[in-house]
Design a binder for these strands. Structure first.
Lengths: 139, 139
DNA sequence: CCGGAAATTAGACAAAGTCCAGATTGCTGA
DNA sequence: TCAGCAATCTGGACTTTGTCTAATTTCCGG
């Protein structure tokens, strides 16, 4: 079973599959995230999408990322107090955050077990569990 | 064993115990956090400290919170993409975050077990593990 | 009382993100 | 084809959180 290739061609289907009208800008932004399979901030997405010449406005980048988030196409990773990262990997997984460099990488959730969490009140549902391992370079 | 009372009197000792020169402003800020035992943002701290009349500048609030953080007197909680919370509870514990209301509460780490995390590269040390349970009100 | 180090301050600045009113795009149905 | 309409996109003003700096104030030891 080969790794999915995220070409611009697949992208439209991916968006449609999530109930998102595949416009030019949305395709560009999706391609930026999915072809790299990396955690990107809104700023980084904007830079990538506008490398050749300015094509997509700041407002659209923010709107689109928010839309992707609502539609479950990407995940939000909140580790850096100064900016949000968007993660094209929506499978269950956790994160390692290098505090000095800001580098963010994935931990597959498959073998990680979290036990002993207290039960939630009846009127509450878990939306997600974020586990972040903050690491530092030894000196 | 009674709960520790965080009066302004104890506060000076608490600061000194963490190698912090207890100035008037620092005592006020520490008192705001420790008497409440709540998670507060810099903004909230500033509001509390300046209720009667403006006494402490924004720069000092930010500087002081950063100092407290470095000296291990408080912890930083990064859950809200728009602001950092400061936590006077430095014992090992995790957090429940109500996404709608922004309400943040503690989970004692005592009974929580996290297993199966992959080993870190040799040149890395864990600085801390943040576990955040994001919950939503059922409708 | 003096001098210097530590702490505080006001306010300018920076960066991330939001908002809005107007312009563009792309259908859809006659 | 094309008028009309909804969805989308845009520049730019604005807000909020946080940082920086240069000048002042506070606090001590001698």
């Amino acid at each position: 079973m080969g790794r999915m290739q995220y070409t611009r061609d697949n992208m439209a289907g991916l968006l449609r599959g999530h109930d998102i009208n595949p416009t030019h800008q949305r395709l560009e932004i999706a391609h930026a995230l999915f072809s790299r399979q990396e955690h990107l901030s809104a700023d980084q997405v904007m830079a990538i999408v506008n490398t050749r010449h300015s094509e997509t406005s700041k407002a659209t980048v923010y709107n689109t990322l928010k839309l992707f988030l609502e539609k479950g196409l990407v995940r939000e990773v909140i580790v850096d107090p100064s900016k949000v990262f968007f993660d094209p990997n929506t499978t269950p997984h956790h994160h390692i955050y290098e505090v000095d460099s800001g580098k963010l990488s994935d931990i597959d959730a498959e073998h990680v077990q979290i036990t002993g969490l207290p039960p939630l009140p009846d009127n509450m549902v878990t939306e997600g569990i974020d586990l972040i391992v903050r690491v530092r370079r030894k000196d």
